[in-house]
Every structure is written in C-alpha cells, then in structure tokens.
Write a protein that binds this DNA or RNA. Structure first.
Length: 592
DNA sequence: GAGTTTGAAACT
DNA sequence: CAGTTTCAAACTC
C-alpha cells in the first residue's frame, strides 16, 4: 500500500478523494484543496503533503500530481480513542466556491460513525487529517496514525484507486474555479461516473455536478440533465447565479479588452456523454476553444426558458440561438468594442510601419552625404538587432492584439486549438523572430496569437525599412527617430481611443439616464452595431466626413510623412486635429 | 437546527 | 456482480 498503487482508477466522490494516509502516492483528492499543508498542524508529524487542488478549482489536475501522502510517524497511539481532537478552529483554506469563485472555507466533516477512516469521510478521502472538523471519535489524526494507516491499506486493498482523483483531467489545461461560474465548465470527466437516479445530476449529490463537470459516458445516471445544452442546467445557471453572471461579465470584459486573452477564460465545457448526444457543432466543434466560446455565448446571451422539467432523458443538442432564446439582461459590451476592429489594428500596424519607413527614409536622406566609417558597423548591427527586437516585439504585441480582438468579437473564427504549438512555428515566414521576441513569446501558448495576424504586409514593410536604412553611424539615431515617430503615432491613436471611449461613455450614461424608466436592456452598454453610430460619428475629421478609422496602408504610404502620417486617419491623425484630451496629448508628447 | 433525501461506500 | 445497508453530505422545512 504504501506507495501508490498507481494506476488510474475511478475516483470516487468528487469531493474527497485523495486519501491520504500512510505513505501513499496517489493523485489528488478532488475536493479539498489545501488542506495539504495542514499537516504541519499536527506537530509536524507528517510529511508535507502535496495534494491536488480542490477539484472544483482545478478539476483537471488530477492524475498529474502525484500525492505524497503523509507518512505517519510510526509513533502512533493505537487504540487511543480520541474523541475528536478538538480541532482548532478551521483556518481559511484555499477552497473555492464553485458558484462565485470566492474563496471559501475548507470543509469540515461531520462524521459520527466512520471514525473518519472510511471514504465516507471527506477528509480521509482527501488524504488529509481532520482539522477543525465536527467529527466524532475521529481517528483521522496523528494520534491515531496507526489506525489510520490500516484504514488506508484496507481501503486501497479494496480499491487501489480510492485515493486518486475522480475527475479525469482534460487535455486542455487547467483552469481555476472561477471559470466554473456560469456555464463555463471545467474540463474533465468523472472517471467512474455518477449513478444518480433522482437528482437529475443537477444537485450536489451528483459528483459530476459537484465537480462542475458535465456527465460523461462513464456515468450511469438516470434522467441526467447535466449535459451540454440541457435547459434545466442552463436554467439553473441563469436563474440563480447572479453572481456568476457578474463574474462572466467580468471575464467577458477582460476578454474583450484583451486583458486575459483567449486562454484566460472559460474552460471549454467538455461535452461528452449524453447517451447519443453529440457535440453541438459536429466535427468542427472539436476545437475546445470554440466550444468554450459557444458555451460562453450561451451563458451570456441566452436566458434559458425553463420549460418543464420533463425533458429529457434523451437530451437533444441544441444550437444556441440567441434570437430565439432571448438575450440576457447582462449584456456586457466594452465601450471600445465597437470602435476597434481587427482591421483597424492591422491598419494601425501598417500605418506605423509606413511612418517608420518614411522616417527612416527621411533620415537617410539627411545623412546621405555623410560616409560612415566601417568600424561603426559593429555598433550598427548591434543597434539594428536591438531595433529589430523592439520592432518584432511591438509587432508581435500588435498581432496579438489583433488576434485577441478577433477572438473576442468573432468567436466563430477562433479555430486555433489552445494547445497547438505556438513555439515560433507559427511565426510569420520570411522573417525570423528575434531571440528577444521569441523569448517574450515563449509564454504564449495560444497559437492564434501568432497565426491570426497576417504579417505579410507588416513584415514586408519592416524589412524594407530596415534595408533602406543606411548602415552607419547615423543608424542608431535613425532608429531612435523611427521609434519616436512610431510611438508618437501610437500614442495619438491611443488618445483617440480614449476620447472615443469617453464620448461613448458619456453617451451611454446619458442614454441610460433617459431610458432608466423602462428600458429592456439595463445592463447593455451599447448596441451590437454601435460601431456605426459611434465609431464613425465620433471620429471627427477636419473635412467633416466620416472615414474609416484607418485608411488603407497603401494610400497611407503615399501621404504619410514622418512628421504627420495619415493626416486623414481618424485614430491616427495628429492630436492637434482632434483633441478632446489635449492635455494628455501634450503631456505624452513631451514625455516622448 | 432537525429531519429528509440522496448517492457513494461498504458490506453481504 | 447485484442487492442491501451504512454513512455523511446535501437539501428542505
């Protein structure tokens, strides 16, 4: 027993799984996270235990985290009947509430007859000592280590996998419990499956539900409603999980603003099971991220109309239909959501490149007459590589932004699997990434970041820019000049965005004030097509004509000059031409 | 907080 | 392996 009888096994209760006890190497216990460190509370008798995270918070961690069960010091007090060691009041543990993602206290068992030496006991099952529990005649403690050990052995004998996690990890990475809110399900599935008969798998009696995962083919439940697309399930989430919705909105907000990126939100609900139930989108839905998005859409856009609970034992997959199912009251829209479009960013990139190109050219002309000493070439190349790195980095960032934007607004287009390599393999061809850029990107696991943006135009310009620059002593200055101009341009653009956002905000607030009486979408901060009426209208141009935020790069290249690129560009136009925040402009101008 | 319901674990 | 009992958590009132 001692050493983990490894092997997978059907985990048991979601909540308590790992059992730990005498030196057992097993996986993580699902339900309780952190008690692991509590062992120190017992006179340090036990070794450090690395337990898996709370299943709910990280359902997938399972099999990957070997757990070293606390090895009881053989100094046990056998038959000591400790009527429950007055466990010190429980200290807050890292458990996380499934619903709102807020930390919650570690659970304490209330065992009365099992002496906390059977899997009935969550603590025991989780492989931790009881601490601060309300159990009676508890033997799951240091004082009864011998008994505990024995119990562990017996348990393992019966089921070698008894202390292993019950929830199988998903191949798609971990996510924290926060994502469990709403309908963002945690990946994974119950190894053994549940056997619910009456709860419809929509109550915590159900281990799957409790773990916030969908029932899978492993389950043998009856009248299961815990499957993707289940109306009951959706109703459950939409109905009384206001907090969850709040969280979802937060997540949405973050996603939209690019704060967390695609991999930062939601766990692709793994839709398994449901006897005969197929994935929502057929073969194409294999992409977990798409799934995730779909699920998220459901969560945020649909307000399930709960029909009768007669539904289904034969669940039918439904394609979320926001039109039919109605929209959620909570429709979050970023103030900039309608202003920034993917193409805008691309165009911005182009403009910046063009500006930089022009700057280089101008600078080169200026210095054309001067010959550069050969020895300075070393310096030059050094500066060049630095600049390259800078540029690559910037471009990479921009590409990322573009990709993010795309992903947040065009979910259907999001096809890149989360785990597809992003290790430079997707890097635009024709331009090797600099070590610095690669280093910066090494953390990016999401391919789409690299694949989405089309580097051709941008890269092409970049290369040209570099090639046009004369190698020589002035090169560094040229780069500095380029950088200055680019940053200035970029700053102007950002200032405009801020302005637009403010305008829109003002507009929205005044609108909501007026409509506060009986509007239907109290939480919506903007119509889906707002771009049309905000983006353009708020982009005052000197001639009074609305124009797209970013003129085509090709045109730009003809008019752009280092001093004032894209004069007609709304977002890129000079600060002075449109300055609701002149102060900011001035300030940043100087800083630059 | 007491009683009931539920389903996993344990037992036969 | 199926059926039953035990158990403790989840749930209801």
């Amino acid at each position: 027993m001692e050493q983990g009888e490894g092997g997978d096994f059907p985990p048991k209760k979601v909540q308590s799984d790992t059992a730990g006890t005498a030196a057992v190497t097993s996986d993580i216990p699902p339900k309780k996270l952190a008690r692991q460190l509590d062992f120190t509370a017992f006179g340090g008798a036990s070794a450090a235990v690395v337990l898996p995270e709370h299943p709910q918070s990280q359902p997938q961690a399972q099999a990957q985290h070997p757990v070293t069960m606390p090895v009881a010091p053989q100094t046990t007090h056998p038959s000591v009947r400790v009527v429950k060691p007055e466990s010190p009041r429980s200290r807050p543990r890292p458990n996380i509430d499934v619903k709102d993602g807020t930390p919650k206290k570690q659970k304490q068992c209330n065992c009365k007859h099992s002496r906390c030496l059977k899997l009935y006991c969550e603590c025991f099952a989780s492989g931790i000592y009881c601490d601060g529990c309300n159990c009676v005649n508890c033997h799951n403690n240091v004082e009864n280590e011998a008994a505990r050990r024995e119990a562990v052995e017996v348990t393992l004998e019966r089921n070698p996998n008894a202390f292993r996690p019950k929830i199988a990890s998903s191949p798609h990475g971990a996510r924290d419990s926060r994502e469990e809110s709403g309908e963002a399900l945690v990946l994974g599935k119950h190894n053994k499956g549940c056997h619910c008969k009456k709860s419809g798998c929509l109550k915590k009696y159900c281990e799957c539900f409790q773990a916030n995962i969908l029932c899978s083919e492993n389950c043998k439940c009856m009248d299961c409603k815990n499957f993707e697309g289940s109306e009951e399930r959706q109703a459950l989430f939409h109905g009384d999980h206001a907090n969850s919705m709040a969280y979802i909105q937060q997540a949405a907000n973050a996603a939209i603003t690019g704060a967390i990126g695609s991999s930062g939100f939601g766990s692709p609900p793994v839709s398994k099971k449901r006897k005969g139930q197929e994935l929502f989108y057929g073969p194409t839905s294999k992409d977990p991220s798409l799934h995730r998005l779909v699920q998220f859409q459901q969560a945020s856009l649909t307000k399930a109309s709960v029909t009768t609970s007669s539904l289904s034992s034969a669940p039918v997959s439904r394609v979320p239909n926001s039109a039919a199912s109605g929209t959620s009251k909570f429709t979050y829209r970023s103030l900039l959501a309608d202003i920034i479009q993917p193409q805008d960013l691309k165009e911005l990139c182009s403009v910046l490149v063009v500006v930089s190109e022009e700057a280089a050219r101008t600078f080169a002309d200026k210095r054309n007459v001067v010959e550069k000493p050969a020895e300075e070439q070393v310096e030059t190349s050094r500066a060049s590589s630095t600049q390259d790195r800078l540029q690559s980095q910037k471009e990479s960032d921009i590409e990322k932004a573009v990709a993010d934007d795309c992903s947040s607004r065009n979910q259907a287009d999001k096809l890149g699997p989360d785990d597809s390599s992003s290790d430079g393999g997707d890097v635009p061809k024709g331009r090797p990434m600099s070590p610095g850029t690669l280093a910066l990107m090494c953390d990016e696991q999401d391919t789409m970041f690299m694949a989405a943006a089309s580097p051709n135009v941008l890269m092409g310009h970049s290369c040209n820019t570099s090639s046009q620059l004369p190698y020589g002593q002035g090169i560094t200055e040229a780069y500095a000049e380029q950088e200055r101009i680019i940053l200035t341009k970029f700053r102007d653009c950002l200032n405009r965005l801020i302005t637009f956002g403010e305008i829109k905000e003002t507009k929205c607030s005044s609108q909501s004030r007026t409509e506060s009486g009986g509007q239907n979408e109290p939480f919506s901060n903007g119509p889906a097509n707002a771009r049309t009426d905000t983006g353009n209208q708020q982009v005052p141009v000197s001639n009074g004509v609305s124009k797209p935020p970013f003129p085509p790069a090709t045109k730009m290249s003809q008019t752009v000059t280092p001093a004032a690129a894209s004069p007609n560009n709304t977002l890129l136009s000079k600060p002075s031409t449109h300055t609701e925040n002149g102060d900011i402009n001035l300030k940043t101008e100087k800083e630059l």
